[in-house]
Simulated assay, not measured.
Amino acid sequence: MYFFQTSKKQITYKKPTYMAEFGIGDENNDKAGVSLHNGLWAPLFALGAGTSMSWWWDSWVDPNNLYPIFKPFSVFVSRLPLADYTWNVSDPTVSPAPPYNIRAWGMAGVGQGGQQLIVTWVQDDCFTWANQHSGVKCTSHSGLTLTTSCSGPSSGNYTGHWFNTHTGEDIGTTSVMCTGHLQDQIPTFSQDIAVYYTS
């Protein structure tokens, strides 16, 4: 069931609903487009029908040449046969718990014959437009482990495909075992990183 919450009442549409136009109120405080970057990546892992879309093409995206931010996301999604899978939100975690907050969002898809596709986005909490505007510097992280559910075979090999969300380049692949969940070493990263696992 999909709904839109207004200040007065909840409207139930009973069909998939797409809502567009998002922003931070004063995009000129975000000349690097951090909010645009996060607004592209986050909706995928909430099983959104599409990305968040900015209204301010003429006064923000174009003057600051933010167009390159779209390409890495486009490259990543083009590798995911989204329509071939039934999707649910998953529950990835990052350990050990560092003194900073590293968040992970994920979704898991089941295809014909039980084939699995697990997709995860890991983000340093410092990587927000407000923090960047205030001069907060994101540090590099290493030695972290990603744990996420895998509902495929009770045991089986998965290949992780790690991806740089800023350059659109592959970082490398990993081989992990699914035993109801899988654990993988996160490559060294700053700001955020993405991965998809194939069974």
Rank of each mutant, 00 (worst) to 15 (best):
T174G: 10
I11Q: 08
I69V: 14
T128K: 08
V176S: 12
T12L: 14
T179L: 10
C178M: 07
D26I: 12
S90M: 03
Y158G: 00
V195W: 04
A97W: 01
G135H: 08
G106S: 04
C126Q: 11
F70N: 04
I69P: 02
T165L: 02
W57L: 11
A32G: 08
S59T: 13
E27D: 11
I171P: 03
G33K: 08
G106I: 03
Y196D: 08
Q116C: 06
F3S: 14
C126M: 04
S140L: 07
S54Y: 03
Y2W: 10
Y158P: 00
I102M: 09
S140Y: 05
D192Q: 15
M19Q: 06
S95H: 03
F22G: 15
D170H: 12
R79N: 12
Y158C: 02
G172C: 06
Q112E: 13
S52F: 13
D62Q: 08
A194W: 05
T147K: 15
Q112C: 00
V34W: 13
D26A: 14
D58V: 04
G111Y: 11
S78Y: 06
A46I: 00
D91M: 02
W121H: 13
S175R: 13
I102T: 05
S52T: 11
Y85T: 00
H161L: 03
I69Y: 01
I186Q: 06
A130T: 13
G143S: 07
T6I: 05
H161V: 00
Y197Q: 03
I118K: 07
L117C: 07
Q115H: 12
F163L: 06
Q5K: 11
Q183I: 00
L36I: 09
W56A: 10
L146D: 06
F73Y: 15
T167H: 08
G113M: 05
V176C: 09
V34H: 12
T167W: 09
I24F: 02
P96Q: 05
